[in-house]
């Protein structure tokens, strides 16, 4: 599939937690379809039996010792918070526990 319906885009916007307006949805459907058609070109490349490359450098086993490093103070941690209370980040009510 290299074109997206309005419902597809609305579903994706839901997954991405973006409350797109109707006008945005309309515009996005058209733009994304053009882009998708273009990027679908990857499927025409001679990629059979080619391993996927997720990383430019073939590094492995980069770890750090289990040693405590100084972090932020609670004040620094909370310095950007839209709202704070009792030393914690205050957030709107959470619908479901999972």
């Amino acid at each position: 599939m290299s074109s997206l319906s309005r419902e597809d885009v609305a579903h994706l916007a839901g997954l991405a937690r973006i409350d797109l307006s109707d006008a945005e949805l309309d515009r996005m459907v058209g733009e994304l379809s053009v882009i998708l058609e273009s990027v679908a070109k990857v499927q025409q490349a001679p990629i059979a039996d080619v391993p996927p490359m997720s990383h430019p450098m073939p590094l492995t086993n980069v770890t750090r010792p289990d040693v405590v490093r100084p972090g932020l103070t609670p004040d620094e941690a909370l310095s950007g918070a839209p709202e704070r209370e009792l030393g914690r980040f205050a957030v709107p009510r959470i619908l479901d526990e999972d």
Binding site: R17, E24, M28, L32, I94, L95
Partner: peptide
């Protein structure tokens, strides 16, 4: 809800190109 605030903020806070790429990547 937190979920609604997230979605409203991400709509208002991101510009059109950012939204386009996020949706494309999500897909």
């Amino acid at each position: 809800t937190a979920e609604q605030v997230m979605a409203a903020t991400r709509d208002a806070g991101f510009g059109p190109e950012v939204k386009r790429r996020i949706i494309l990547g999500t897909y």
